Simulated assay, not measured.
Amino acid sequence: MTVGQIAGLIAALAVVALVALLAVPLLKLGGVLDQLRTAVRDLDDSTVPILEELKGTVTVTNDEIAKIGDVTTDVHTVSEHVTEISSRTNELSKVFTETVGTPMVKVAGLAHGIRQAGAAQRAGRLGRRARRNS
């Protein structure tokens, strides 16, 4: 064997050793890629049902939001009606007070005055009788 053949043999052995050293990481990388492919497939299989369920939930939520909008409109309408009833009740109270309440207060005051005058007059007579008898 010549020096060139020995050098070629050493170079060939070096290349074989290099290929052997690189084969191990390549095989491990292939295993990692297989696991990654499996994980992506599992993720896809589990994501589709979740997205379908989410779609249903969003649909139901949108329906409920629409119902809340209707309720809010109804509450606003009821609030306007209550405000109108309140103002009409206030006006009715004023009318009642002016037509019935004020005259009743005057009649009650007059009756009270008459009672006090009658009581004072009776007390005055009793006082005069007592003086006359003594």
Rank of each mutant, 00 (worst) to 15 (best):
A11M: 11
S93K: 15
T102K: 12
T89M: 10
L29V: 09
R128V: 04
L26E: 08
T38A: 15
L26K: 12
L26T: 11
T2A: 06
L51W: 00
T59Q: 07
Q121K: 15
A17P: 03
V107F: 05
T99N: 09
R131C: 05
L54S: 13
L92T: 12
R128P: 00
T89C: 01
A39H: 07
G8Y: 02
S86L: 10
G31V: 03
L54K: 13
R128W: 00
S87P: 00
E52M: 03
D63W: 07
G127N: 11
A11P: 07
N62I: 15
V48T: 13
V105L: 04
A123C: 02
V58T: 14
Q116C: 07
Q5F: 10
T57A: 12
L13V: 10
G101E: 06
E91Y: 07
V100L: 14
P103R: 06
A120E: 04
S87A: 06
T89N: 02
I10S: 08
E64F: 03
A119V: 15
G8V: 10
E91C: 02
S93N: 11
S46D: 08
R122E: 07
V100C: 02
L126S: 15
G69Y: 05
A39W: 05
E91D: 13
T47M: 11
T47L: 14
A123S: 12
L26D: 08
V19H: 00
G113I: 10
G69A: 02
S134R: 15
K106R: 11
K67S: 09
V60I: 07
A111I: 14
L13H: 14
D44H: 08
R122T: 14
D70V: 11
L18P: 09
V3Q: 13
V48S: 06
A12M: 04
L36A: 14
E64R: 12
S86Q: 08
T83Q: 11
G8T: 09
D74F: 04
T61A: 14
G4F: 03
